[in-house]
């Protein structure tokens, strides 16, 4: 499938400091690309280079096959974007702000403004001045401006910021609908890892300006660590039994037995049965899946394997 967004060794340096360091990524049509990174990792600088707002020190970016540059304005016909916190003209109403975007993009049909307000639940606020909007509604207005011309490519920087949980779900569903039904290519930068894991079909991790990992959602699932934790009244004896059966067992700092053995993780009931037979019934049996946050931290090498528990099934209390 065609690469809609394509960067090649995109680099931005400020006085020797590499804010973005040789970032090469590809986003195909209809993909939702989650761009993850800590604050200052280079996410916004990368997006600004993709939008031609900052000239790369070296490297290039292409969108829809056209090279991005400040002078090539034709590339923006099919691009909608929202960079960092969205701001609107404070003394203009929601509708007037969207009317302005209509004119700037030379769009026909005033119904488009009504439709996007309806879609983003902004209709009740259409006559409210932007300066009086809540943070969540200001965010919705920013997204509405990005979507008004129904772009084929969307570049969104932290789109879930300021939204309440219901708003986050709405925007997620909206973006998924755009990607899956209309083939919109979406590039989202975020630090809300849980949100990215729910929406992205491909994930790129940027750290200290470098794209340290790029993987598809399926690959992420394969590479996430899954481990089995168990407790018995006699951990030493239980570990001995399981080791004799060929499992690799370790003890963590809480005295729990831990294994990443593939068979054990997939068949915790078999281990429970074996321990019961050995008169060492488990008092706790738990399959723990690494969440995206932990995976991310592991990738950037800041937090080893000390990952948080996910909502994986808890077999025994």
């Amino acid at each position: 499938m065609k690469d809609i967004i394509y960067t090649e060794n995109l680099t931005k340096s400020y006085k020797g400091f590499h804010a973005v360091d040789h970032v090469s990524l590809r986003v195909k049509k209809g993909e939702i690309y989650g761009f993850l990174g800590l604050n200052g990792a280079g996410k916004t600088t990368t997006i600004r280079m993709m939008l031609g707002m900052i000239r790369p020190t070296s490297g290039t970016c292409y969108i829809n096959g056209q090279q991005v540059s400040a002078g090539n304005h034709h590339v923006w016909e099919q691009v909608g974007y929202m960079v960092e916190t969205p701001y609107a003209y404070p003394e203009l109403t929601v509708k007037e702000n969207l009317d302005i975007t209509m004119h700037l993009r030379q769009l026909e049909g005033r119904w488009k403004v009504a439709r996007i307000m309806e879609r983003l639940k902004l209709t009740p606020y259409e006559h409210k001045k932007a300066k009086h909007l809540s943070m969540g509604n200001a965010q919705r207005l920013g997204i509405a401006k990005a979507l008004l011309h129904e772009p084929g490519v969307l570049l969104l920087d932290e789109p879930a910021n300021g939204l309440d949980p219901a708003g986050i779900v709405e925007i997620r569903e909206l973006l998924q609908e755009l990607a899956y039904e209309k083939g919109t290519t979406i590039f989202i930068s975020s630090h809300i890892l849980g949100e990215i894991s729910k929406i992205a079909t491909k994930i790129g991790i940027i750290h200290e300006g470098r794209l340290i990992r790029e993987l598809r959602k399926e690959e992420l699932q394969q590479q996430q660590i899954v481990r089995l934790l168990l407790k018995t009244r006699d951990s030493y004896a239980a570990a001995k039994v399981l080791r004799n059966d060929g499992y690799t067992i370790q003890r963590d700092e809480d005295g729990r037995l831990v294994t990443q053995d593939g068979y054990a993780v997939k068949n915790p009931d078999q281990l429970a049965k074996r321990l019961v037979e050995a008169d060492l019934p488990p008092t706790m049996l738990f399959v723990e899946e690494e969440d995206l946050e932990s995976f991310f931290l592991r990738m950037i090498g800041e937090k080893g394997e000390d990952f948080h528990a996910s909502t994986a099934p808890n077999y025994m209390g």
């Binding site: 707002m53 002078g71 960092e84 916190t85 701001y87 003209y89 975007t101 700037l104």
Partner: peptide
């Protein structure tokens, strides 16, 4: 000051 400049930079006409 209103931080709206970024909305004027990637539009389909010369800046």
């Amino acid at each position: 000051t209103d931080r709206t400049v970024k909305d004027l930079l990637a539009l389909p006409f010369p800046r």
